Amino acid sequence: MAYSTISNTWPPSVRYLATICRILSLCVEWNWIAKLPKITQFEEPDVRVRWKPRPVITTLIQAIAMDWLKEVALFAVATGMRADEILSLTWSQVDTARSHAWVTHGRAKSKRARAVPLNADALAVLERRRGIHGSMIFTRAARSGRAVAKISQVDARMFERACRAIGIEDFHFHDLRHTWASGHVQAGTPLMVLKELGGWERIEMVQKYAHLAPTHLAAHTETVTFWSQQTLEKKQPPLLAAVGA
C-alpha cells in the first residue's frame, strides 16, 4: 500500500499530528504498510493573551469618542462578556435587583447558557442605558438623530483610533475580555471559578492566565527546604537537654 505526502492548507494541531504519527508507526510495526508517509510537522501557534492594567483601560475608555462604544467597552471589561453577547443583550436578560445577566445558549460560544454576575461598573452602565430602547440595551442613534438602531458589531476603527490616541499598539476589543480574566486571576479568583464566569468550555482554555497568579503557590514554598530548615534545627536545643534543664 502506498501513501503520498500528507499536507493541509492550514496547520493542524500538534497533538492530533502526534496521534496520527503514532498510529502510522504502529502500522509499520505490524507490517500493515511498507513505510511511514512523509508528514509535514507544524508548530502550534502561541496563545495570544493581551491585557492592560486598570489605569490604562480607564484612559482607553475615556478616549473612545462614541458614547455607545464607550459603554460597551466598559461593560465588556466589567463582565468579561464577548462583543456579540453584549450587543445582543436585552432587558429581559438582566435582573439588576439580583445583579445578574443571562447569556442564552444561542449567543454563547460554547452553546451553553450561563449567568453573568454584574458588578458596580456593569450596573452603572445599565442604569445609564435604561429608557433608551424598549428591548435592546445597547443601541446607537440613527442617522436621523431621532430613532435608535441596533448595533450589529463593534466599531473596530473607532476602538483602534482610541488605542492610538493613548499610545496602545496591537490591542483589540476582545482583549478587554483577556484584561477582565487577567484581573480576576491576579486578584485570586480560582481558575475553575473563572472558567464558569467566562463561559469557557474546558479548563485548558483558562490555563493561559495561570501564570499571572503565582501567589497561590507561595504558601507551599516552605513545605520543603534544606539549608534554612537545617540551620533552624541546629539552633534549637535537643529535646533531652531541654527536659533535663
Rank of each mutant, 00 (worst) to 15 (best):
T59L: 11
P12Q: 11
D67M: 00
G80R: 04
I86W: 06
R48L: 05
C21I: 08
V28M: 06
V72A: 12
A34E: 15
A78V: 03
S13V: 01
M81S: 01
A18K: 14
P53K: 08
S88F: 02
S88H: 06
E71H: 07
T19Y: 12
G80D: 00
T40Y: 04
C21Q: 15
R15F: 14
Q93E: 09
Q41P: 00
Y16S: 07
E43A: 11
L26W: 15
C27K: 08
C27M: 15
L60E: 05
F75I: 01
T58G: 07
P11T: 11
T79S: 02
V28F: 11
L36W: 10
V49W: 09
E43D: 13
A18H: 14
V28I: 05
R15D: 12
V56Q: 10
D84I: 01
P53H: 10
V72P: 02
W91F: 04
M66Q: 14
T40G: 03
W68Q: 00
W68P: 00
I23M: 15
P12G: 07
L89F: 06
A65Q: 04
F75K: 00
L60N: 03
R82F: 06
K70Q: 14
I39C: 09
L17F: 10
K52Y: 05
W30A: 06
S88E: 07
R48N: 06
K38E: 14
W32F: 10
V77T: 03
L60W: 11
